[in-house]
Amino acid sequence: MMYQDSIDQASEKAALALAFLQRHRLAAHPVNFTVGYDYISGVNAELCHAIEQKLAAHIPFDDFVMAELYSNFIISTSKENEQLVNQVNQIVSKLAGSSELASEAITEYIGVLDHSLLALKTDDPHQARDTLHRLLDATYDVRTSQQKLRDQLKQSNEQSQQLRNELEDLKKSRQVDALTGLYNRLAMQEQVDQWLTEDPKRRIAAIAVDLDHFRQFNQDYGFNIGDVILSKVAKKISAYVQESGLPVRAGGEEFLILLPDVDLRTASEIAEQVRRGVEKLRFVSSRSKKALPKVTISLGVTLYQAQENWHQFLARTTSVMNVAKKRGRNQVATEAMV
């Protein structure tokens, strides 16, 4: 984001940005500070709207949330978009050039044809022969131009398909968490919006998942091993969802499973299966070859309510999951229990 702030304006915004970070107990590293500064500046409407929604739903801000905001609303994808646009422009330009040449050749051919048809009415055999030669040459020219146009169309179709693939890859990269391979919050919001657009009364169950004592685990064994654990747990969660729902990485060690057309009882049964599956996982340090502590998860299950927005829905699901933590962790809590 480009600014034209004076030194005084920049200093004032920087102080407010730091206050925002302190209020949410966030470190003032570049990513967090940039998000805070953009929010205070108010020039990034989409970023401000996303933050206001999270504030209204009392969603806690952490480094993961801030990195997600930075990725979705601040990091410019203009270079990638510019490359794609340039490629499209090249395809269109080549097609336009080939089409123009083909059009000129056809126009010229029609003129030669009209002239030749009149000339062929002569009784002079030499003139008729010359006319036929000119007509034949013009026909070859048209054939050549049409062949070039056909080749260009074929090439353009191939390039267009490649562009479509690149656009699809770009879309997927913006919707997938790099570490776990699960969907991110952007994909989750788009999917929920799509489900509710199809049917505003559609039943959607949510399972909030949080790794127990994971911050202590990271402190004891390091973030690299922690990332491996997160990745393995995410894979296990995804295995229970398959194509029937949407597995999401919602925070640092938090996951979310969205299940359309599923009632609370069925969602609770799925949550229990996920809990048991993760509990059975065993991890060994590749360096020391020693077994690592057993990893467990706490889960909360809720159903979407039509009168709430999806931020409120997620906040409520998290609060139900916190009930499972307060009751001893490694268990499933449902909103019926709260």
Rank of each mutant, 00 (worst) to 15 (best):
E308P: 01
Q216K: 13
E308N: 15
L299G: 06
I257V: 14
A271P: 03
D227G: 07
V320W: 02
R215C: 07
S319M: 11
S285L: 04
S244F: 02
K326G: 15
S319P: 01
S298M: 05
L256M: 10
L314G: 00
N309E: 05
G251V: 00
G300R: 06
L211A: 02
A267K: 02
T318F: 02
E243F: 11
S298D: 05
D212P: 10
W310Y: 13
Q216M: 07
V233E: 04
R287S: 10
R249G: 02
L281G: 06
V295S: 03
A324G: 12
R287M: 04
E243N: 13
L258D: 02
I229M: 02
G251F: 02
W310C: 08
L314V: 04
L258V: 11
Y221C: 06
Q273K: 14
D220I: 00
L303N: 03
A239I: 04
D263L: 11
V262T: 15
D227T: 05
G328P: 09
V301S: 04
A315D: 09
V295A: 03
V274I: 15
I270T: 14
G222K: 08
G277Q: 04
R327W: 06
N218T: 12
R316F: 12
F217W: 12
F223N: 15
A271I: 03
I270Y: 07
V209L: 08
F313Q: 06
K326I: 06
S268E: 09
R249N: 04
N322H: 09
Q273D: 15
A267E: 01
Y221L: 04
D263S: 11
D227V: 05
A306G: 01
K232W: 02
R265T: 12
A324Y: 13
Q219G: 15
N218P: 10
N330I: 03
P293S: 09
V278S: 05
N218C: 10
V320E: 01
S288F: 10
I297F: 03
A306C: 07
A306T: 12
N309V: 02
V323P: 01
E254W: 03
T318P: 00
E308T: 10
L299Y: 08
Q216F: 04
L281D: 07
R329D: 11
R329H: 09
K232T: 07
S238K: 15
V228Q: 15
Q312S: 11
L281K: 09
G222I: 01
V241T: 05
L281F: 08
L256I: 06
S268R: 08
E254A: 01
Y221P: 06
K289L: 13
R327A: 10
R329Q: 13
N218M: 11
R329M: 12
I297P: 04
L230S: 04
P247S: 00
R249A: 02
S231E: 09
Y240T: 08
V241N: 00
Y240I: 01
P247K: 00
L256W: 02
A239W: 07
K289M: 12
I237K: 01
R287F: 01
V262Y: 09
F313M: 10
V323H: 12
K289W: 10
N322C: 00
R316M: 13
F255R: 04
S238N: 14
K235T: 12
S319E: 15
D212K: 14
A306Q: 14
K325W: 06
I270R: 12
A291T: 06
